[in-house]
Amino acid sequence: MSVLMKAADPNAALQMLLKKYGVAAGTKAKIALCGESGALVPGDSFAAKDLPAGAAALLPWRVERRFVELKNLVDNKTVEKVSTLRFASMRAGANLAELLYREFDLCEWIGGSRIVSLFASFNAPHAANVIVKLASGVAASVEVGATLPAGSAPVDRHEIIAARGVASDRVVDTQMPQHSVYVMNAKGENRFTDTDAELYGLSEEEILAVRAAYKVLANEKIKSEWQEQHVNLRRLVQAALKSDAECVRVSI
């Protein structure tokens, strides 16, 4: 009785989108979540190592709806005169560099300004805290952790504090991400959050990779911008490591 198609795999879904919306470029493009020569790969996976030859970095969180809307709230001046960003991300088994890569990009993208300095405090490989300063004057705290037990769902929070208004991807008086559907039966509790009907059936990570790949294939300028940003983000991650190692504030 389903009226939605179920996406089979990320690359088939990407080709479906390209065909549906008439994007000629990229019919041979391939997403490789774990990296592969010539493929489109999530940039954060290569925060601490070089991209495979000919690979292009994706910034998949930039197509995630909650971040798009948070950015819209800033860009459209729904919240005005941003002062501080408070970002946090915990992921089981993650590499701290990967986590920082994404959060640094979100700081710059949502904040609309470059990071110009940072001070980092690591307790590797478990956790790190960083205070960054944007060229606009906005300050941001970035907390990352890799100590969640295996199998745990990621936990994160992104809060924008402005002279006019606070915006967040977490509802007031809650600490954990909410979900669309909770199923409770004898096997325990299952949670689902579905936000993309066209790509229903793929995991959230796969959906974001497909949407990001589609975006760069449909717009060569974005592809170039993201490659430049990948280089910048790797430099920021290195600066954070240096700040921690030398216990100094690092200017970028």
């Binding site: 208004g165 915006a167 909770y182 959050t193």
Partner: peptide
């Protein structure tokens, strides 16, 4: 068993303009 579902959530939230009220920004 049981299932509870919100067909339009979660979202992002703010208390910015135009009325400075706590508001759901649908995603």
């Amino acid at each position: 068993g049981s299932m509870v579902a919100d067909c339009f959530g979660p979202n992002v939230y703010h208390n910015g303009g135009p009325n400075d009220r706590y508001t759901v920004q649908y995603t």
